[in-house]
Amino acid sequence: MCYSAQIKSDYSKFLRQQVPVMDLAAFARLWLRENGLEREKIPKGVIDTVGPRLPPDVSAALHARFAEDEAAWQAEAFKQAKRKADNERKLQTKVTKAASEHVRIATNKIEQLKGWIADLHRTELKGRDWQFFPQWWVPVIVRDGDDYVVRPMRYQLRQPGTPASSDFTRKGEMSGTYNARRDNLARYWRRQFGYTHGLMVIEEFWENVDKPGGGSQRIKFRPKTGEPMLVACLWANWTDPAGIEPDLPCFAAITDEPEPEVAAAGHDRTIINIKPEHVEAWLNPDPSNLQALYEIFDDKQHPHYEHQVAKVA
Rank of each mutant, 00 (worst) to 15 (best):
A26N: 04
A28Y: 02
A28T: 06
R29F: 05
L30W: 02
W31I: 09
L32E: 09
E34L: 14
E34T: 11
E34F: 08
E34D: 14
E34H: 07
N35V: 07
N35T: 10
L37D: 14
E38F: 11
R39P: 00
K41Q: 14
I42P: 09
P43K: 00
P43Y: 04
P43H: 06
G45T: 03
G45W: 00
V46W: 03
V46K: 02
I47C: 09
D48N: 08
G51D: 00
L54P: 03
P56I: 01
V58Q: 04
V58W: 00
A60K: 07
A61H: 07
L62W: 15
H63D: 13
A67I: 05
E68N: 15
D69G: 14
E70H: 07
A71Y: 04
A72D: 11
A72L: 14
W73S: 08
A75M: 11
A75W: 06
A75N: 14
K79R: 13
A81F: 04
A81P: 08
K84A: 15
A85C: 02
A85Q: 14
D86H: 05
N87G: 08
N87D: 13
K90G: 14
K90L: 15
L91Q: 09
L91F: 06
K94F: 05
V95F: 10
A98M: 08
A98K: 10
A99Y: 01
E101G: 10
E101R: 14
V103F: 10
V103Y: 06
V103D: 11
V103H: 06
R104W: 13
I105T: 01
A106N: 07
A106L: 05
T107S: 15
N108A: 11
N108K: 11
N108Y: 02
K109V: 12
I110P: 06
Q112R: 13
Q112W: 08
L113N: 05
L113E: 08
L113T: 06
W116D: 03
I117A: 09
A118Y: 09
H121C: 05
R122V: 10
R122L: 04
T123S: 09
L125E: 00
L125V: 02
K126D: 10
G127I: 06
G127M: 02
G127Q: 02
G127A: 12
D129C: 07
D129K: 01
W130C: 05
Q131W: 04
Q131F: 02
Q131Y: 01
F133P: 00
F133W: 10
Q135F: 08
Q135R: 11
W136K: 09
V140T: 05
V140K: 00
V140G: 03
I141W: 01
V142T: 04
V142K: 06
V142S: 03
R143N: 13
D144M: 06
D144L: 09
G145L: 07
G145K: 01
D146N: 07
Y148H: 08
P152D: 07
P152F: 01
M153L: 03
M153K: 00
M153H: 08
M153N: 00
R154W: 03
Y155W: 15
